[in-house]
Design a protein around this nucleic acid. Structure first.
Lengths: 122, 122
DNA sequence: CGGTATCCTCGACGATACTG
DNA sequence: CAGTATCGTCGAGGATACCG
């Protein structure tokens, strides 16, 4: 079992689907979820807000640069909120936005699908 | 609007989520959908079976090599069926497998999500 | 603690040529 | 028509160092 979703070239140029605007919805969704860690991050934020260091520990072998980038993209696309507490040392908490909340059913379906069809572990 | 999901490095090494097997389902699903065109291909096969050339025309600027690779991966992962008609010139038809059919609800939700939150076109 | 900046790797994908 | 083979690009993400 080796295979990691790393996503390159951010997003579809809408040109790719010229005239096929019926397909725009799914292309958009794929775009804002493009990135190796985003589904996992959203999954982890589903239940509660989390600190930067918690997310990093959860994901394990993600680099700091990548994590920050993925979080910024999710924030830019409006899926998560970022709250900074002006303390020393600093504390930053991430949580799902209302838009992000609406993505939860998709996460849940994907998880269910994977559990049903994925390789059995154990 | 520029951003295309291209996915590199196929799939998660299960090591990535060591001890976090609760998240295995979603990681698996992300894996088998890793690839720039797979959601679009599945979306296109949703309604009916299609020939290779139809899919290529639908996707527009995908290269032959990439299309073949993505179709082979989808087939290997059991999401689509490939039927070859031994004619000249050859005819090959792709259709969703039963496993692929079960992925449709996810496609539909993602499309709905994208239509709701995506940039308005028109 | 939660970043930012810089460099580098490496694999997905595109382009092109060719084939049964 | 539906591929296969080969080559080249290019950008996501890792590694490392440093910062307020």
């Amino acid at each position: 079992m080796k295979r990691v979703s790393r996503i390159c070239k951010d997003g579809f140029d809408i040109e790719c689907i010229k005239g096929q605007r019926e397909v725009y919805g799914i292309a958009y969704t794929q775009n804002i979820l493009s990135g190796r860690w985003k589904y996992l991050i959203l999954w982890y934020l589903k239940s509660k807000k989390r600190r930067y260091s918690e997310i990093k520990a959860f994901l394990g072998d993600i680099s700091q640069g990548s994590l920050t980038k993925q979080l910024r993209e999710l924030e830019t696309d409006g899926l998560i909120n970022r709250k900074v507490y002006p303390e020393v040392p600093p504390r930053v908490e991430y949580s799902l936005s209302s838009k992000g909340q609406e993505f939860i059913p998709i996460i849940d379906l994907m998880e269910e699908f994977g559990k049903k069809f994925g390789v059995q572990i154990d």
